[in-house]
Simulated scan of single mutants.
Amino acid sequence: MYRAKTTIEQWRILQAVVDFGGYAQAAAQLNKSQSSLNHAVTKLQDQLGVALLEVIGRKAYLTEAGEVMLRRARHLTQNIQDLEELASNINQNWEPEITLAVDLAYPRQYLYSALKAFQPYSRGSRMKIVNTVITGTEEAVVEKWADLVIAGNIPKGFLGEPLCQEYFYAVCHPDHELAQLNSPIEPSELAQHLQIVIKDSARLPQEKQGWLKSEQRWTVSDFHCAIDIMQQGIGFCWLPEYTLIEAFKAKQLIKLNIKGSSFRAVSFYLIAPKADKIGPGTDMLYQQILALRQCNAHEAL
């Protein structure tokens, strides 16, 4: 087995001397004597047989070889720090991985703001963010495979905190046959046209939504694909408002005037399926999502 000639502490001292501009400055920052730092770096260079630093005046500069080796050493010292922090986190029951299931219809700008705020305090926990659709989101709650779930409804037996309300509109291309009708469209007539639907992510999908009535269907995996297809003049689709802003501005899609149903509102909730076993990292993310929730009144486009 290979035995290292150098120590992590030697590389940390070298890094400090370079970062703080000299032995005196590094000694003050590390609360060590200047002579001990000088000795550590000298011994490091002797052990390696390579000159890492040269002192010009009162300031220490890296040699060309020193630049290469210190760059590699920074990765080493960071990995050691991460490893030690991981051990501390495990000792405190901090989760090594957090799984967040998010209904595809939840506005992403709210989610990303919460994740950005959480990241600096995540302690290296891996984040697994899974997009779910319709009953696939409910499945994530009921089967408890996710630590946190953002869902459009709360399954029986669970509790959730309200986050926001999102509006869904039936839309199509301006040249589509449905767009040419002046009077409100009867739901029965709408059902005769091709509908673009988003694939339910559940293992055993259960069709509960009343807006999925058309017999003619094309199923796609995401909203972007649905929009691209409709921009070719094909079919109609119910989509959340946040996905339609650009298409509305460019007049590539229009809202359908449907009798008795100009839009559908969906309220989103934050659910902790394993609330009695929630870890400190999951709880911190939970609180961050709640702190940035958007429960303000809807502003129509």
Rank of each mutant, 00 (worst) to 15 (best):
Y167N: 01
I229D: 06
C237W: 01
A60T: 03
N38M: 14
A300S: 13
P187V: 09
I227E: 01
E64D: 10
Y242V: 02
G260C: 07
V130R: 11
Q252V: 03
A140Y: 01
S262L: 15
T135V: 06
K156I: 12
P184E: 08
T6Q: 12
Q45M: 10
D103K: 04
L194N: 00
Q15I: 04
A51Y: 08
G136R: 07
S188I: 08
G21Y: 01
L292S: 05
V17L: 12
D276P: 05
G235E: 06
S125W: 00
N131C: 09
S262Q: 12
C164D: 03
Y121C: 08
G136S: 11
K156S: 14
P187C: 12
L190W: 01
V149Y: 02
V17N: 08
E161C: 09
A4H: 10
Y167E: 00
Q119N: 13
V102L: 14
V50T: 07
N93L: 15
Q287R: 15
F236S: 05
A297R: 13
I227W: 02
K128G: 07
Q287G: 13
Q180R: 15
N89T: 03
F248A: 09
V41M: 09
G66H: 05
W218L: 15
E143K: 15
S221W: 02
K43V: 14
Q232C: 10
S262Y: 11
L163P: 03
A151I: 04
R72M: 13
P155K: 09
Q216T: 02
S262D: 08
H75R: 11
L30C: 02
S262H: 12
V142Q: 07
K144F: 03
D228C: 13
A191Y: 07
L270D: 00
R12L: 10
C237H: 05
Q192F: 04
P96L: 09
L181S: 11
V50G: 09
N93Y: 11
S201N: 05
W94Q: 06
V133W: 07
N182P: 03
D222Y: 04
A247G: 06
I134W: 15
I198C: 04
L83N: 13
Y110L: 12
Q81K: 13
H224F: 01
S88L: 15
G157R: 03
A250D: 10
A250N: 13
G260N: 05
A105K: 01
L44R: 00
D175G: 07
Q78S: 14
E67S: 14
F236P: 03
L301K: 11
P107A: 14
E215F: 12
V149C: 06
A275D: 04
Q119A: 14
A28K: 13
L256T: 00
G233N: 12
S33R: 12
A117M: 12
C225W: 05
K259I: 06
A24T: 05
C237I: 00
